[in-house]
C-alpha cells in the first residue's frame, strides 16, 4: 500500500484549524455545561416535587436521547425557529452545552450529596444561612470531589464534538471527510483525524491528572 503523506501535508493547515474549532467548541460546551449544570443540580435537589419535576425531565431527555438526534433537532428545528437562523458552530455549541449540563448536573448533585450531613449542620449551628453554607462549606468540597468525573465528561465531550461534522461544522472530522472526498482515499485522512483526537484527549488526561494532583483530590 502506498501511504500518501502528501495528502496529510496538504490538509495539515485545515486539520490544525479544525483542531482549534474542536477545542473551542468543547471548552465553551464544558464551561456552559458547568454553569447550567450547577443550577440544574440545585433545581433537582429541591424538596418540592413540582419544582424538581422539570429538572428531572430536562436531565432525562438530554441523557436519554442520542446526541446526534439532539444536534439535528437543535440545528434544523429548535434554533431556526427561535433565532430565525443558525450556524453549524452555534448549533454544536448550544447542543454540547445543554447535553453536558445534564451530565454535569448529576456530577454536582452526587458531589453535594456525598458531603457528610454534619458539615451543613455544623455550619448552620454557627448561624450561617443557607447561601453561606452552600458557598463556603458545601460547594468547595463538592467541587473538589467532582473534578475527576468532570474531567471524564470533558473528554467525552471533546470526542462527541466530532458529531458537528454531520452538520458541516468545520472541525477535525469535517476536514478529514473533505480530504477523503477529494482524493478518494480513506486511510490517510481518517488515521490522521483519529491521531489528532488521540493527541487532544491524552493531553487533556495529563492536564487533568496534574490538576488533580495539585488540588490533592482523593
Amino acid at each position: 500500500m502506498n501511504f500518501r503523506f502528501d495528502i496529510i501535508q496538504e490538509y495539515l493547515p485545515f486539520f490544525l484549524q479544525g483542531m482549534g474549532l474542536t477545542i473551542l467548541m468543547s471548552v465553551i460546551g464544558v464551561l456552559m455545561g458547568c454553569i447550567l449544570g450547577f443550577f440544574i443540580a440545585l433545581g433537582k435537589m429541591s424538596p418540592i416535587l413540582i419544582v424538581r419535576l422539570p429538572f428531572i425531565w430536562y436531565i432525562n431527555f438530554l441523557r436519554g436521547t442520542p446526541l446526534l438526534v439532539q444536534l439535528f433537532l437543535f440545528h434544523f428545528a429548535v434554533l431556526p425557529s427561535l433565532l430565525g437562523e443558525t450556524t453549524p458552530v452555534l448549533s454544536v455549541i448550544v447542543t454540547l452545552s445543554l447535553n453536558s449540563s445534564a451530565y454535569v448536573a448529576e456530577i454536582f448533585r452526587a458531589g453535594l450529596q456525598s458531603i457528610d450531613k454534619g458539615q451543613a449542620e455544623a455550619a448552620h449551628s454557627l448561624g450561617m444561612n443557607k447561601v453561606q453554607v452552600m458557598w463556603h462549606v458545601l460547594l468547595p468540597q463538592a467541587f473538589k470531589r467532582s473534578i475527576p468525573p468532570l474531567g471524564n465528561e470533558f473528554i467525552v465531550l471533546l470526542k462527541d464534538s466530532s458529531l458537528g461534522a454531520m452538520i458541516a461544522a468545520q472541525d477535525v472530522l469535517y476536514w478529514g471527510r473533505a480530504a477523503s472526498n477529494e482524493y478518494l482515499k480513506v486511510w490517510e485522512p481518517y488515521l490522521m483525524v483519529a491521531l489528532i483526537y488521540l493527541v487532544l484527549t491524552l493531553s487533556l488526561t495529563y492536564l487533568l491528572n496534574y490538576i488533580e494532583k495539585r488540588l490533592d483530590v482523593k
Binding site: D116, G118, Q119, E121, A122, A123, H136, V137
Partner: peptide
C-alpha cells in the same frame, strides 16, 4: 458535635 465536623 461528637464527630467534630470541622471544615476539611
Amino acid at each position: 458535635f461528637q464527630q467534630f465536623n470541622l471544615f476539611p
